[in-house]
């Protein structure tokens, strides 16, 4: 039966250990069992002191993060290490893909997008209806597969004194049914504000067209994409393709940083589903503050200059 450990499957991109792996490791710690990390070879940025055991697979990352291959890897790991109590993945494109396929293969319970754990009841919190409510799930058999929401558990990681044992899982054959070909960067060229994760959006309140280059500078420095409200387009300060709102584009970025946008209803309709809305406006009564998660009442252009200075200086 269960061998009393948590197996964390690493997410690796272009040789780098993704930061959201800290959340899977963090949940592993909260579960109170030794944590083993499963990863391919040649990965940079792993802090092995966070782990109790490291299991290395002789495969490149494109082969490793393949749901068909993952099943064969897990079969091997379960054989050599015993069956874990929990198998944890990041709740990401590949993490969720591998977890679903593996849970289906092993007929194992799976809760995805876990953002909380209740020690007393042993239940996992999973968001429903875009975080409007949460379901607490209990697993009825083992091993339980979980995918973990980024940002949820990273503060729980702890460091060991000594480096963990590193073991090899051995060679893994690629899968016939699915093969990795290459990475593709999303096509550049025309700006698509609907695809951006971080939008810096400006409104009429910035004052004049002359201010636009400084906002472009800030967006570049913060690696944000610049968008705007309708009056900015009407005044030809920015092109139509940058417009957010009912008569422009509907966007759902991770962060929507609204600078000098008062928040007309038609604008709100285009951005209200952003994960995090930060509004900066000089008017404390601006309607956008009703929709924002964070608000700052300030002289927007002054704060912009300070941000450019800080970001570029760091």
């Amino acid at each position: 039966m269960s061998a009393g450990y948590v197996l964390v499957v690493a997410e690796v991109r272009r040789g780098l250990f993704e930061e959201r792996n800290l959340d899977t490791i963090g949940l592993g710690r909260e579960l109170g069992l030794p944590v083993s990390l499963l990863l391919p070879e040649n990965v940079n940025g792993v802090d092995e002191l966070l782990l109790d055991r490291v299991l290395k697979v002789s495969a490149d990352e494109g082969t490793f993060l393949n749901p068909l291959v993952m099943v064969s890897i897990l079969v091997k790991v379960f054989e050599s290490q015993g069956q874990p109590d929990f198998v944890l993945f990041t709740h990401s494109s590949s993490g969720a893909e591998c977890a679903a396929y593996a849970a289906g293969h092993f007929s194992a319970p799976l809760v995805t997008d876990v953002s909380g754990f209740d020690q007393s009841t042993g239940t996992f919190f999973k968001s429903y209806y875009s975080d409007k409510v949460f379901a607490q799930f209990k697993s009825t058999s083992s091993p339980t597969f979980l995918t973990v929401r980024s940002g949820s558990f990273r503060e729980n990681v702890t460091r060991n004194q000594a480096a963990p044992a590193v073991e090899s899982v051995g060679d893994i054959a690629p899968a016939e049914g699915r093969t990795f070909l290459e990475y593709v960067e999303e096509a550049g060229g025309a700006v698509d504000i609907t695809k951006a994760e971080f939008l810096l959006s400006v409104g009429r309140g910035i004052g004049s067209k002359d201010e636009i280059p400084r906002y472009e500078e800030l967006a570049r420095a913060m690696r944000a994409v610049l968008s705007c409200s309708r009056p900015v387009v009407d005044k030809l300060w920015l092109p139509k393709e940058r417009q957010v709102g009912t008569s422009g584009k509907t966007v759902k970025p991770k962060v929507y940083l609204a600078m000098a946008i008062s928040g007309a209803f038609q604008h709100i309709a285009g951005m209200k589903d952003a994960d995090c809305i930060i509004a900066i406006n000089k008017d404390p009564e601006a309607p956008i503050f009703q929709y924002a998660h964070f608000g700052i009442v300030a002289d927007v252009n002054k704060l912009r200059d300070k941000l450019i200075e800080t970001v570029k200086g760091s």
Partner: peptide
């Protein structure tokens, strides 16, 4: 027209 995304901006 409250909902139409005109391609270019004309004087309103």
């Amino acid at each position: 027209r409250m909902f139409f995304d005109v391609e270019t901006t004309y004087q309103r």
